[in-house]
Write a protein that binds this DNA or RNA. Structure first.
Length: 817
DNA sequence: CCTTACTGGCTTTTT
DNA sequence: GCCAGTAAGG
C-alpha cells in the first residue's frame, strides 16, 4: 500500500532541527501524536536516549505513551522503522501496538511490511531470530514448535522408557520443572545443584534427555524459543553484535512480567547502546507462577545505571473511590516501587461489597444486577452488556455464571476459555497438516495414525516404533519399511499402507503449492499477506481431511458434539484462507493460540483476572473473594507470603479494571470438588478502605431472604439499600467490620456440611404435580410438565428442551421461593 | 482391537 | 463433579 503523503510528512519533520522539550519547538512542528499527553507522558516520549523505566500505573495511558514514543523516534530520525524493536507478551498487545502506531503514523492499520518497526511477542520475535541461526543450536531452520500437548506426550515416552511410575511422578510435574528451568535460562548443564532433588532426583537427567530428543525431532518447545536465542547470543558475539546494530532502540511492554530468560534476551540486545525503554507496573505483576520476576523491574536502575525513571500516575480510567479501594488493598504489599494514582474524575459510586449464601446465589444476584444495570433500572444510566464484565480468580468459577446466564437467557461470552486450537478435532486436523508439510513429524504421526480408527492399536504402533528405530528413520519410514518387509499383517496392514500413501500424496501436493519453506520464513515481518495464486492450500487441506477419513469419522459420530466439531473443522479450513501456505498457517497457530472471534453482539464478558489485565470495563463484578479461592490456597501453600502478595496484586488488577462501578462479592458456601464447603471472606476484603466501600445487605445472610429480593424486580429486600442514605452505609460498613459479623461467619464455618439454601418446596415431594404445570429448574430454567412417572417428571423446558427430571429438583414456577 | 464401566485425582493462572 | 486413564468384556 502506498503512503507517499505520510512519508512526505516525515521528510518535512525530519528536516527540522533536533528535538527539544521547549514549548516553542513543539509548537513549531507537526507532531499531532503528542497532543493531549500529560507532562509525565511527554517526558517518557521525549527521553529517547539511554535507559528509561516508565512506571505506569493502571489506566495511566502507557500504551499511548509507548506508541507515541515509537512514532517520535522515527519522526526525529533517531532510527528508521526497522531499527526499532518493540516487544510485548501477548499477541493481542502486539496487534494493538501495531494498529496504534500505524494509525499515529497516518498509515492504515496492517499497512505494509516496510516502514513499520519490529513489533511482536518475545516468542514470535525469537522464532524469527532462531530460524536464521538454528544450526547454532543443532537445529534445522524449519524446526517445529511443540505445544504443551506434544511436549507432554514426549515426556511420557521418556518417563516410560525409564521405568518411572508416572502415577507417582506425573509427566506434568516434570514438564513443570523443565519449564521453570527454561524460564531461568538454565540449559541442562546449567541447572544448579540445588535443583538436583527435582522429580525424584531424576529431573535434570530427564531434562537433558528431553532436550536431546527434541533436537533429534528437530523441534523446540515454547521455553526453548527464548532459551536458544539467549544461548546463541551468549556464545556467538558476532551474531549478537549484528542484532545489537540492528535494533538500536528497544521498547518493552509489561516489563514486570519478564522472566529471567526474557530479561537476559533484552539485556544482551541492549548491552551496547542501552537505548531501552521498559514500561511496566510492579503492582500488576501477576505471572510469578510462570517464572516472571518482579525483581527485574525492581532492580532496573541497578541493571541500567543512569536510568531515567518516569512515573505515570494520572489515571484516566476509574473513579476516585475505585482507585482508593485498589490503592488500599495494594498498600498492604511490602516490596513496591510505590506510586500514587490520582484522577480528575468525579467521585461516583463507592465500591460495593456483598456476601451471599452460596455460589449459585452469587451468580443469581450478579445476573440480576447485570440485567438491571443494562436496563437502567438501577438508578444509573443504562450500561450495555458489552461494557460489563465478571472477573474470576479461577476458571472453574465460570460455570456457575454460565449455568445461570443460560437459564435466564443472559448473553455472555467467555474470554480465554477453551481455545479453538486446543480442541481435539482441530489438533487432529493440524497433525494431518503437519504430516503433509513434514512427513517426518513423528509426534503428528503418532497422533493420527489411528485416528480415525485404522485397526492400529498400541501393539502395532510399538512395532512401527521399533522398526523406525532399527532403520534410524522417522515413524512414517518405519511404517513403510515394516509394510515392505511384511512385518505387519491383516486389516491393519492394508489401512496403514493407505495411510502412508496418503501422506506421500499430500506431501507431494504441498511441495507443489509452495517450495523452499525454510528460507522464505525469515524475511517478512508481517507474513499475513492474502492468499496467493497457487493450487490452493485451502483446497488441499479439505482433501487431506476427506481422504484421511477424518471428516467421515465425525460425520458418522452420533454424539451430540460431533456436529460442532465438524463446524470447527470448517472454520479451521476457512481460517486457512488468511494464509498463503499450510506451513505459514502452522507457524502462526503454534504461536498464536488464541481464539477471539469478533462478534458484535451485546454480551457480558466472563474471564479470569489474568485474562483481564490490560482491559477495562465501566461495570466490573469480582465474585468469589473468599480465602482459599482468592487468595488461592495453592498460591499460599506454594509461595507463602510472596504468593499472597501476588494474589493481592491480582486483586489490585481486578479492581482497577473498573471504570465506574465495581462490585466485590463472596459466598459463605461453595461447592469444591462437588463437596459443599464453608468459606470465609477473603482477607483482602479486610484491606478495603471502609470509607470507599458500600456494604450491601446480602439477600441470603442478613434479613430479607432471597424471596424478597428476587423476581419482583428489586422492589423490596436490599433493593433500596444502596444509592440511598449515607449514614446507613457507614453503619453497614461498621457492621461488617465488627467482630460480630466475623463471628457470624465463623459460626457458619463451624456448621457441619452446609447445604445450599433449599430451592425446592416440599410439596414437590408429595407428588403434587399435574401435567401442564409451569415449573422452574435452577439449571434449565422454565418449562412445562409433559409427563409424570413416579418421582420423575418429563419437562419441556423453554430454553433447554425436553428433559426427565427428578421432581425434587424443580419447583413450581409461580410460587415465590 | 475396540468399547464400556469404573476409579481416582484434581483445578489457579498461559506465551 | 469432571476428566483421563485403566480394567474388564465383546
Amino acid at each position: 500500500m502506498n503512503s507517499q503523503d505520510e512519508n512526505d510528512a516525515f521528510e518535512a519533520a525530519a528536516s527540522l532541527p533536533p528535538a527539544s522539550l521547549s514549548a516553542r519547538a513543539l509548537a513549531a512542528r507537526p507532531m499531532p501524536y503528542l497532543d493531549g499527553l500529560n507532562p509525565a507522558q511527554l517526558e517518557a516520549v521525549m527521553t529517547l536516549d539511554g535507559p528509561v523505566l516508565m512506571l505506569a500505573g493502571a489506566g495511566t495511558g502507557k500504551t499511548r505513551a509507548l506508541t507515541a514514543r515509537i512514532v517520535h523516534l522515527m519522526a526525529e530520525r533517531r532510527a528508521r522503522a526497522n531499527e526499532i524493536l518493540a516487544v510485548t507478551f501477548t499477541n493481542k498487545a502486539a496487534r494493538e501496538m501495531k494498529d496504534r502506531v500505524a494509525r499515529m503514523m497516518g498509515h492504515a492499520a496492517h499497512a505494509q511490511d516496510t516502514g513499520m518497526p519490529w513489533m511482536g511477542t518475545f516468542h514470535s520475535l525469537s522464532v524469527k531470530i532462531l530460524r536464521r541461526h538454528a544450526e547454532l543450536v543443532g537445529l534445522k531452520p524449519n524446526f517445529t514448535i511443540l505445544d504443551t500437548d506434544d511436549q507432554l506426550r514426549l515426556l511420557k515416552q521418556l518417563i516410560a522408557a525409564e521405568n518411572i511410575d508416572d502415577k507417582r511422578w506425573p509427566a506434568r510435574m516434570l514438564a513443570g520443572f523443565i519449564d521453570h528451568w527454561k524460564n531461568r535460562a538454565w540449559t541442562p548443564g546449567k541447572v544448579p545443584s540445588s535443583e538436583a532433588g527435582a522429580y525424584n532426583n531424576r529431573g535434570t537427567e530427564l531434562y537433558a534427555q528431553y532436550q536431546e530428543r527434541l533436537r533429534s525431532l528437530n523441534a523446540v518447545d515454547f521455553g526453548d524459543l527464548l532459551l536458544h536465542c539467549v544461548t546463541i547470543f551468549r556464545a556467538h558475539g558476532d551474531v549478537l553484535a549484528q542484532y545489537q546494530r540492528w535494533f538500536r532502540y528497544i521498547l518493552v511492554d509489561e516489563y514486570q512480567d519478564t522472566n529471567v530468560a526474557q530479561y537476559l534476551w533484552l539485556r544482551l540486545l541492549a548491552q551496547g547502546h542501552q537505548n531501552i525503554c521498559c514500561v511496566g507496573d510492579d503492582d500488576q505483576s501477576i505471572y510469578g507462577w510462570r517464572g516472571a520476576e518482579v525483581g527485574n523491574i525492581l532492580k532496573f536502575e541497578k541493571d541500567f545505571p543512569g536510568a531515567r525513571v518516569i512515573r505515570l500516575e494520572q489515571n484516566y480510567r476509574s473513579t476516585p473511590h475505585i482507585l482508593a479501594a485498589a490503592s488500599g488493598v495494594i498498600a498492604a504489599n511490602a516490596a513496591r516501587l510505590g506510586k500514587t494514582l490520582w484522577t480528575e474524575a468525579e467521585e461516583g459510586e463507592k465500591v460495593r461489597l456483598i456476601g451471599h449464601w452460596d455460589g449459585e446465589e452469587e451468580a443469581r444476584w450478579i445476573g440480576e444486577e447485570i440485567e438491571a444495570i443494562s436496563r437502567g433500572t438501577r438508578g444509573w444510566d443504562p450500561v450495555g452488556l458489552n461494557r460489563q464484565a465478571i472477573l474470576v480468580r479461577a476458571s472453574h468459577q465460570m460455570r456457575a455464571f454460565e449455568d445461570r446466564f443460560l437459564t435466564i437467557g443472559l448473553p455472555y461470552r467467555v474470554i480465554g476459555g477453551p481455545r479453538f486450537y486446543e480442541r481435539q478435532e482441530i489438533r487432529d486436523a493440524m497433525a494431518y497438516f503437519r504430516l503433509a508439510v513434514s512427513p517426518d513429524d513423528d509426534l503428528a504421526f503418532e497422533r493420527v495414525v489411528n485416528t480415525p480408527k485404522r485397526g492400529l492399536g498400541d501393539k502395532a504402533v510399538q512395532r512401527i516404533q521399533t522398526e523406525a528405530r532399527a532403520v534410524g528413520m522417522s515413524l512414517l519410514e518405519g511404517a513403510r519399511s515394516l509394510l515392505a518387509g511384511g512385518g505387519l499383517t491383516g486389516k491393519g496392514a492394508g489401512q496403514l499402507r493407505q495411510f502412508v500413501e496418503g501422506v506421500d500424496r499430500w506431501h507431494g501436493a504441498v511441495a507443489q503449492t509452495r517450495p523452499a519453506p525454510a528460507e522464505a520464513v525469515i524475511e517478512p515481518m508481517f507474513p499475513d499477506t492474502p492468499a496467493a495464486n497457487d493450487l490452493s492450500h485451502v483446497r488441499l487441506a479439505e482433501v487431506i481431511l476427506e481422504e484421511s477419513g477424518y471428516v467421515s469419522m465425525w460425520q458418522n459420530d452420533k454424539t451430540p458434539e460431533a456436529e460442532g466439531r465438524l463446524e470447527n473443522l470448517k472454520e479451521l479450513v476457512k481460517a486457512l484462507e488468511q494464509f498463503d501456505s499450510l506451513q505459514g498457517f502452522l507457524e502462526h497457530v503454534s504461536l498464536v493460540m488464541e481464539n477471539d472471534s469478533e462478534d458484535a453482539a451485546e454480551k457480558v464478558s466472563i474471564m479470569t483476572l489474568h485474562a483481564a489485565k490490560g482491559l477495562e470495563f465501566p461495570v466490573v463484578f469480582l465474585p468469589g473473594w473468599e480465602d482459599g479461592l482468592f487468595p488461592s490456597q495453592r498460591s499460599i501453600d506454594e509461595s507463602g507470603l510472596k504468593g499472597i502478595e501476588e494474589e493481592r496484586r491480582l486483586a489490585y488488577v481486578g479492581i482497577t479494571r473498573a471504570e465506574v462501578l465495581c462490585t466485590i462479592s463472596f459466598a459463605s458456601n461453595r461447592r469444591v470438588y462437588g463437596q459443599w464447603q464453608s468459606q470465609l471472606p477473603s482477607r483482602f476484603i479486610d484491606e478495603l478502605p471502609v470509607a470507599h466501600v458500600d456494604v450491601l445487605t446480602s439477600p441470603g445472610l442478613m434479613g430479607g431472604g432471597y424471596g424478597a429480593a428476587a423476581p419482583a424486580g428489586f422492589g423490596g429486600g436490599f433493593g433500596g439499600g444502596f444509592g440511598s442514605g449515607i449514614e446507613e452505609r457507614a453503619t453497614k460498613a461498621d457492621v461488617y467490620n465488627s467482630p460480630g459479623w466475623r463471628r457470624l461467619q465463623d459460626r457458619q464455618a463451624a456448621r457441619p456440611a452446609p447445604k445450599p439454601r433449599p430451592q425446592t418446596i416440599d410439596i414437590a415431594a408429595d407428588g403434587a404435580w399435574t401435567v401442564g404445570d409451569r415449573v422452574f429448574h435452577v439449571k434449565f430454567g422454565y418449562g412445562h410438565i409433559t409427563g409424570i412417572e413416579g418421582d420423575k417428571l418429563d419437562i419441556r423446558f423453554e430454553k433447554a428442551g425436553e428433559k426427565k427430571i427428578v421432581s425434587r429438583f424443580v419447583m413450581p414456577a409461580d410460587v415465590p421461593f
